[in-house]
Design a protein around this nucleic acid. Structure first.
Lengths: 212, 212
DNA sequence: ATGCTTTTTTGATGTAGGTCAAAACACTTC
DNA sequence: GAAGTGTTTTGACCTACATCAAAAAAGCAT
């Protein structure tokens, strides 16, 4: 799974403000209705980026400074274990916020990499701006709490459940149910890694071959 | 693991306000320094309870209305799986906040039970009061965000890691390192359930007997 | 101390899913 | 279309840990 990643270490292309879609505004407002002034400020803090497949939003070892909103496209979060194997921990699909929590909150080097699996339109907000907005606007705090609660907690609690209480087959079909598009968009190997199943076993599950 | 739980279905004993320790105040202030007025209001919203071992803070099927602060004592979170087996999902030790997120946030029946493993002093705040405080005090929002971030995220991300990337032996020693007191305070069976290991295997791990 | 209950340990056996190696398939690119 | 690269499938074998059953130990009440 060696990537031609270095090709893409060019500076981020920035979309014009005008090209900034209202889709993100909608996403923001659907979480909690912000006053127009605050909304404008929040949107202004999010910088739109048009990025190619294979680009790294975050590299292991670097400190994470952003929260991202995936407007279109797909990311995978992974780290390299002590045996050199890439381990996927998360995918973020369009209309979701994402970041690396441990690195962001403690401003410490990230274990995770965040890489694009598809050409994507991403809005990035600096964590320093998030903190400023928190200080400045009470309404933003409320929005932020709800964003964490809806977006983050829910998903993460489910993930624990899957890992703790489902077997390989159940994990796979559970994922298919939640994210039907994944089987087309993400390679078997990447899905297997996320589900903590070997490629071979996932292949057998997919083809309903019993392990005999 | 049949409990004599019903013995304790008496109304909650409430401690006098005077008995309310400053320990919780300290815990609150250590997360984020609140203005005196706000702090007073927050403390006032937390009701102290002196509860016996085996008491249930939350029962599966009920809607969770509170966030709790464990001043002293210990809780276990568990649910009963489809085969009738109790599955521990979490322990909360003194000086930590706890609740059942899925039930609290969506005000839906809980899957989890939260039960005391020791006589405990618990401070309970109604979620409705949390929401009122959020609306009323900007500072409280900031405190709340930090509380979630420090308290919750960090622990929960670690939990995913343990489940996804560690084997049984690693999970056990990792827990011992993080919570050395657990081996004294919590029965082997309860620890095994939390670690998602059978009692027998955990017993062998503890006694360094290889599985042959 | 003497039961009685609950928890922990030990041993024997079973199985889900991992690992290794090779073949089959699917893509790009020339 | 052939060659090259990456991905998926297949088969043989292995291992970590579960399950079942029974014994031993530890907590309790009386």
């Amino acid at each position: 799974m060696a990537q031609k990643e270095n090709l893409y270490f060019s500076p981020l292309k920035t979309l014009s403000k005008k090209a900034m879609s209202t889709k993100m505004e909608e996403s923001i407002q659907s979480i909690f209705q912000l006053p127009q002034v605050v909304l404008a400020e929040v949107c202004d803090a999010f910088k739109p980026l048009d990025l190619p497949k294979i680009f790294f939003l975050l590299r292991s070892g670097k400190i994470c400074h952003n929260i991202w909103f995936v407007q279109s496209g797909l990311t995978r979060h992974f780290y390299v274990d002590d045996r050199g194997k890439e381990r996927n921990t998360w995918f973020t699909v369009e209309n979701n916020f994402t970041t690396d929590i441990p690195s962001l909150l403690n401003q410490q080097p990230a274990r995770e990499n965040i890489q694009l699996l598809e050409d994507s339109i991403i809005y990035a907000i600096a964590y320093s701006d998030v903190q400023k907005l928190q200080q400045k606007h009470h309404a933003f705090c409320i929005w932020y709490i709800k964003m964490l609660e809806n977006n983050y907690f829910h998903q993460i609690e489910q993930r624990i459940d899957e890992l703790q209480f489902m077997n390989a087959t159940e994990r796979y079909f559970n994922l298919l149910k939640k994210e039907p598009s994944f089987s087309q968009r993400i390679s078997l190997g990447n899905i297997a890694s996320y589900l903590n199943i070997s490629q071979e076993t996932l292949s057998r599950i997919r083809n309903e071959k019993p392990t005999f």
